[in-house]
Amino acid sequence: MISEMLVGRSEAIASVRTMIRFAVKATTTVLVTGPSGSGKEVVARSIHQESDRADGPFLAINSGAIPSELIESELFGHEGGSFTGATSRHLGIFEQADGGTLFLDEVGEMPLSLQVKLLRVLEEGTIRRVGGREDIKVDVRIVAATNRDLKLEIGAGRFREDLFYRLCVLPIRMPSLGERREDVALLIEHFLKQNDKVEAPSFSADALDRLAAYGWPGNVRELRNLVERATIFFSGQQIVAKEVDLLLDIASQTANVAPNAVTTAEGGTVESAQPVASAPIFENGFSLQRHMQEEERRLIVDALVECGGVIAKAARMVDVQRTTFVEKMRRHGINRDDQLAA
């Protein structure tokens, strides 16, 4: 199972597998570090599925995607009437994960006030719902993750040193894709096999060389997205280096925008943007770049409508961080209130 979920033959990923095997045998907390998009949740899921908790729940929560005023309730639950809008008892994610594993993603973005309470849970194994008076015993294995340097965060006063050492009992560092370029071809093969709805494209040797040489600032997530784009536009065809450059260029050019204004679901205002018209990919014909921009905008709008305008929920629906989702709204000039009124 570990080898299936962590694709690759590089020394860097082999080291991760070794650390996971140690983690599986233990019950202690694990801290997974590494850049965004490198696959930290895959590490957490591998630990859970290989452990004796595999029959229990695996739940994940992004500490940076939930408004600070709601995160305590999301983690620990609340009693009915404990605050405005709390009409009934709500079980937090700790209680829901009882007997299983809880993945705390982006733990470095957790407010200091919550860090104290998380430390208490780790040390005592109990939680208390918001508005509650009783401590509730929970049996949850914690795997936390961050793309931040927590030692720098400690020095800046944004992260508790005692919590860091309580989380970092067993550290696992997930390498960037740039550190494991020899795994690119295997990852492409893995992602192509996951989509059996259309005929998969193939990649020529020069295309694979081009992809292996690319820097991958978005890491494995960026590679997965590129393979998905390739499947959409080159189904059943062979992709050569020229098409690889085209697919990479589409992603890089989506940031060409000009500022305006947009209202967020939380009622604040951020700088917005209208898409800037760019030269079509083909001088006379279909613009693949524009098509991808329109598809992204449609998905964001659909997610906002489906989630009633709650940005954090919509971001989770399309599998991006809340801050990234707001930035994409800004790029596409999307006003939440306009979409809900439509």
Score class of each variant (00 low, 15 high):
6 L>V: 02
9 R>G: 10
13 I>L: 07
18 T>W: 02
33 T>C: 02
36 S>N: 09
40 K>A: 01
40 K>H: 04
50 E>C: 05
50 E>A: 12
53 R>D: 00
57 P>H: 14
61 I>L: 15
69 E>I: 08
81 G>S: 05
84 T>Q: 06
97 A>P: 10
101 T>M: 13
105 D>A: 05
106 E>A: 00
114 L>S: 06
117 K>F: 01
129 R>N: 03
143 V>P: 00
149 D>H: 12
153 E>W: 00
164 F>R: 01
169 V>N: 03
175 P>M: 13
181 R>K: 15
184 V>F: 06
195 N>A: 04
199 E>S: 11
203 F>I: 10
204 S>K: 03
205 A>F: 07
209 D>V: 10
210 R>K: 13
217 P>E: 09
218 G>C: 06
234 F>C: 06
241 A>F: 00
247 L>E: 05
247 L>M: 10
249 D>M: 13
259 P>R: 14
260 N>H: 12
275 P>N: 08
283 E>C: 06
283 E>D: 14
284 N>C: 05
294 E>M: 11
297 R>A: 15
306 E>T: 15
307 C>L: 03
309 G>I: 08
317 M>G: 02
322 R>L: 08
324 T>C: 04
325 F>D: 01
338 D>A: 13
338 D>W: 09
338 D>T: 12
340 L>V: 07
